[in-house]
Simulated scan of single mutants.
Amino acid sequence: MATATIPHLPVLVIHHILQFLPTKHAIRMSSLCKQWAGLWSSLPVLDFEEEDEHAKFINFVDRCLEIHEKYEHLDKFRLHMRFCSFEDRYKFNKWLGFAVERRVKELDISFSVHTFLGVGLLSALLNAKSITSLNLGP
């Protein structure tokens, strides 16, 4: 049985491919070969979809944002969570602030369960002059 190999591709092509994947999958793809290793961390797109245990998801987002802290801009920040508890609001406001500080262009936030986020969300959005696309969905 022949094994498939990933052809050597220019970094710009790899970046382009990884930008279309949720961050979790982009990280997995980055482990396929040495050329792809770590490239996910320089993407201007962060796409988080809560699939696992809530606490693990919160920690995963925190770790990813820590790694992206050195970058100055984001093209897209997508955060789809099941819910945002009262305890999670601090984290959510921190994540939103992270995106706004990096002059995010596309912001897509939604929760499966109705969640009231209140004044923190509104004040952050009022200061976000870079946003060209905003989706606040269920």
Results as ranks from 00 to 15, higher is better:
K94T: 07
T5S: 12
S112D: 11
R103E: 10
L74Y: 03
I67G: 01
V61T: 05
W95Q: 05
L12N: 09
N127A: 14
V119F: 10
P44H: 13
L74M: 10
R63M: 14
F20S: 09
K24G: 07
D108F: 00
L134V: 00
S133T: 14
I109P: 05
F111T: 13
S85P: 05
K24L: 08
V61S: 03
Y71D: 04
L79E: 02
F48W: 05
W40R: 02
E50I: 08
P7F: 09
F92L: 13
I14T: 09
R89L: 11
L32H: 02
I58A: 13
T3P: 09
K70W: 03
D88S: 09
L65C: 09
A128F: 01
T115Y: 01
E87Y: 10
F60K: 07
L21T: 04
E51V: 14
V104A: 09
P7Q: 12
F98N: 01
E51Y: 08
L136D: 00
K76A: 12
K91A: 10
L121I: 02
D52E: 15
P44W: 12
L134F: 01
N93L: 06
K70E: 05
L65I: 14
S41D: 03
V13Y: 07
E53V: 12
F20E: 04
E53P: 04
C84K: 06
F98Q: 05
F20R: 12
S110E: 07
R78T: 14
F20G: 12
G118Q: 03
H114I: 12
L136Y: 03
K76S: 12
E49W: 15
K105L: 13
T5R: 13
T3I: 12
L74H: 04
F92H: 04
L122D: 03
N59E: 11
I67C: 04
A99V: 07
M1K: 12
I58W: 09
L136T: 00
S30W: 04
L121P: 02
I109L: 14
H8C: 07
A99Y: 07
D88H: 11
H73C: 08
T115M: 03
